[in-house]
Design a protein around this nucleic acid. Structure first.
Length: 186
DNA sequence: TACTGGATTCACT
DNA sequence: GTGAATCCAGTAA
């Protein structure tokens, strides 16, 4: 049994992104006094839906690191936070939703809402609530911005996701979420 | 250099 | 359910 509230080391993120994505559920994300429990993740490898599908500069982190933050900008206004995973092949896990725990007042200010369920129920929402931006891209996970162990082992459901993934009929990416949790996206 | 479309969210109908 | 917001990485020329 692993000790509770331990900062997960980079080696913890070395492996198959699908496996890591599932194991991340129930773990705690902490950043500068704000924290919450991860309730939804998505795994990306080298499938067509993944940035690493092509060998581009942006995907360098996914191809060459594990246990680091990969933060990218999308739709002209949103940030999305991933953790790189796979040492041998490209991989990353997108954090899609979080159940807020600490620093809720700060999250509410950043998000401009008092609806707790709307604070982190989406990849771009949680980045706004946690103050995650492009400045965090390429950072190593540490005590101030990292993933911590949690005692509970959540029940999960597994489903194929992403419009691209479905359209291209690829098995990836895979989305994982804690069953019946009200803080998941959609 | 000039498009094109996106791992999203929100307001509006 | 639909469309706008809005910037950047990637691609084509």
């Amino acid at each position: 049994m692993e000790p509770v509230n331990r900062l997960l080391p980079p080696s913890w993120f070395e492996g198959d992104p699908v496996v890591i994505a599932k194991k991340l559920l129930g773990k705690t994300l902490k950043k500068d006094g704000v924290s919450g429990v991860i309730v939804e993740t998505e795994a990306y490898g080298t499938d067509p839906a993944s940035h690493a599908f092509r060998d581009t500069p942006r995907a360098k982190l996914m191809r060459e690191t594990h246990g680091m933050w990969y933060v990218y900008f999308t739709y002209g206004m949103h940030w999305c936070a991933n953790i790189t995973t796979n040492k041998k092949g490209a991989g990353a896990v997108l954090i899609r939703a979080i159940e807020p725990r600490e620093g809720i007042a700060l999250m509410e200010r950043r998000r401009g809402t008092h609806d707790v369920r709307a604070l982190c129920s989406g990849p771009a929402k949680l980045c706004q609530a946690f103050g995650i931006t492009g400045k965090d891209n390429g950072r190593a996970l540490d005590e101030t911005f990292g993933i911590f162990d949690a005692p509970e082992i959540p029940r999960t459901r597994i489903e194929p996701s992403s419009r691209i993934g479905i359209k291209e009929k690829t098995p990836l990416p895979w989305r994982f979420s804690i069953k019946h949790n009200p803080f998941v996206s959609r």
